[in-house]
């Protein structure tokens, strides 16, 4: 050992700890029924298989525990693995769940909201916090701003609102748990409210999208009729139907007469 440490100053630096922030999708679980979970997970993934392939994931147990549900983390992880997702963390779990997660080599994260349950606080004492922390940014209120074009083959995922100033090319995919704003031409696929937020909206300057979706309700290019194409629109969900409307609200729909 001592010989080794003497060598240390001469050998080049082999590693370095750095702190950085990632955007990782969070899977909020609201049921203890594994069959239902598996089925709904499959449905969600089928909307954007490319996006979810090998995607990291943080499991959020808050809802489950609020309702006092019981769920087997090992079985859950199994389902998620089979769906092609890779859990890299758990949050809001109780002692039992966190312990199970650690046995599966899934790190435990604390929730940085004010409502930390006593259980998770207790948990903190037995959970080794990695130092320095790689803080997983799951703050839904933050928005992501993008100024570069999103090209064919590129994918963007935002946990909060997604604001894009450049164009989104055909063959590109943008997803957000919140709203999507594209202040340019939207030619690719845009999916807002991907975690089920039915209040999410899509705004764009020039609609030429291949697919638009809000909380899983989608329309493909073929479904978009000429009255909504090539102009600024907003898209929202009303009674489970996608509504596409001019952003500029004209009085008494006179706008249609102009063209």
């Amino acid at each position: 050992m001592s010989i080794d440490s003497q060598k240390m100053p001469n050998s080049p630096l082999a590693l370095e700890f750095k702190s950085s922030t990632f955007s990782v999708p969070v899977l909020v679980l609201c049921s203890e029924d594994l069959v239902v979970i598996e089925q709904q997970l499959k449905e969600k993934i089928s909307l954007a298989p490319e996006f979810f392939r090998n995607s990291p994931l943080v499991l959020d147990m808050q809802e489950i525990n609020k309702h006092g549900y019981d769920i087997d983390i090992a079985a859950l992880t199994d389902i998620i693995h089979k769906a092609g997702l890779l859990p890299i963390g758990i949050r809001g779990g109780n002692i039992q769940q966190n312990k199970q997660a650690l046995e599966l080599l899934i790190p435990v994260y604390s929730i940085h909201s004010s409502s930390v349950s006593t259980e998770t606080q207790k948990q903190k004492t037995i959970t080794p916090t990695p130092e320095p922390t790689a803080d997983i940014d799951t703050d839904v209120t933050t928005s992501t701003l993008i100024t570069q074009p999103i090209r064919s083959g590129q994918r963007i995922y935002a946990t909060g609102d997604l604001v894009i100033l450049a164009q989104v090319s055909a063959g590109a995919e943008i997803m957000s748990e919140g709203n999507i704003h594209v202040y340019n031409t939207l030619r690719g696929r845009a999916l807002a409210g991907v975690q089920g937020n039915t209040e999410a909206r899509i705004f764009c300057f020039d609609l030429q999208a291949e697919l638009i979706s809000i909380a899983g309700n989608y329309k493909v290019s073929e479904d978009l009729d000429e009255t909504v194409r090539n102009k600024p629109v907003q898209i929202y969900l009303q009674d489970q139907a996608l509504i596409i409307k001019d952003i500029v609200q004209h009085h008494k729909n006179h706008s249609r007469n102009i063209r």
């Binding site: 570069q148 074009p149 999103i150 090209r151 064919s152 083959g153 590129q154 090319s169 055909a170 063959g171 590109a172």
Partner: peptide, 24 residues
């Protein structure tokens, strides 16, 4: 043109400048 768009996407995300967070 579509292929070019794809290449531009790769330039913007996978090149050394992109990876090292330098000027694009």
């Amino acid at each position: 043109v579509r292929d070019s768009d794809r290449m531009l996407g790769i330039l913007a995300s996978k090149s050394r400048r992109a990876v090292d967070n330098e000027e694009p």
